[in-house]
Design a protein around this nucleic acid. Sequence first.
DNA 1: ATACTAACTTAAACCAGCTTAAGTTTTTTT
DNA 2: AAAAAAACTTAAGCTGGTTTAAGTTAGTAT
Lengths: 192, 192
Amino acid sequence: MSEQLGKHIAQQISIFETDLPKILAYFSLATFDKKAYLLQENQSCKYLYFVNKGCLRLFFCDDKGIEQTIQFAIEGWWMTDLTAFHGEKLAEFSIQAIEATQVMVIDKINLEELLKEFPQIERYFNKIYQRAYAASLLRVKHIFSFSKEAFYQLFSTKYPQFIQRIPQKILTSFLGFTPEYLSELRKKNMKK
Amino acid sequence: MSEQLGKHIAQQISIFETDLPKILAYFSLATFDKKAYLLQENQSCKYLYFVNKGCLRLFFCDDKGIEQTIQFAIEGWWMTDLTAFHGEKLAEFSIQAIEATQVMVIDKINLEELLKEFPQIERYFNKIYQRAYAASLLRVKHIFSFSKEAFYQLFSTKYPQFIQRIPQKILTSFLGFTPEYLSELRKKNMKK
DNA sequence: ATACTAACTTAAACCAGCTTAAGTTTTTTT
DNA sequence: AAAAAAACTTAAGCTGGTTTAAGTTAGTAT
């Protein structure tokens, strides 16, 4: 069950099978209930998470007190508040489990040790961050190129499982509009 | 003049002074006129650029034919279409010089060689990508938390030099609204 | 089972920001 | 220096999406 991370690493970079257990030893396993917080805004961010099973979201509260979801992490994705994790600032995002979620956890000190013992892992994280960066740019592209309606259509045809899995309020906070407008869109769609 | 990249690397990671020239040898120097294209949508993306002097932008054309600017790169920033550079797809963004711009250029093969000879550089790029990723997330946060007016206010107080440096049309394509609306905002501001 | 709370829907009034179209100013080209 | 093109401004009308507020349905706890 917790071998997912090992597999993921072996997929991305070439590494000795025998090193994997040593690498995984730097991590610990943790589970969180649905709605549990892994990190809260304005706290210090001590951990980096890899999702084995379940789903996390990264979000913040805007000045009107409305939660805005920036990213999701499902199986095989990493999540943290990067800037805060590197100790520069307090977290400006919160991380919450949307479902009961099992994660691999590492803190900054263990990460440093891991990278010292296995510098090849640097390359693995490089790929992870490049992928995350590219995904975030694509997100900005989508925000600019699609109307909210079109963005919803795109998202719901591309990730239909996701739509089932996530409460509507969280979904709209990710898509960037109000639950009321989503209702309107859904009604409109059913007519077709 | 072209020592900027060396300095930048030495700032981010610990490295022998004597290795720097060997590292820089993998790059070549190039200059582009104002408005020149370094990359165009739907081409293959062969190079990764580091800006010594000047300013680049990454953008795409939306379905109405309007250019949308996703990112700028000034002195000390890297730029490419990441996904395309790694050879997976054709470019979905274009890169253009906003001013006469001097860059350090490297192609994929030389980058691989460089990383083979100096694996420490992997750590340098790790920092670069983490920073770029964090910046992109922050951008999404800003899009969600500010009205267009507030975003313009923020941007123009935080980067006043930038406002001078960039033509209004490109600025609005970055801020995500129309030149007409920018005029309106400026008029409104002058009254105060 | 019953009550309480959270998630979702509906509809009307409203507004931030867009579109269009014409005018002005600046820059580039010849 | 003149002409053409590009960059910016102004103003009116319009629309995608929000706000508000009330009603419905589903989930959860007692």
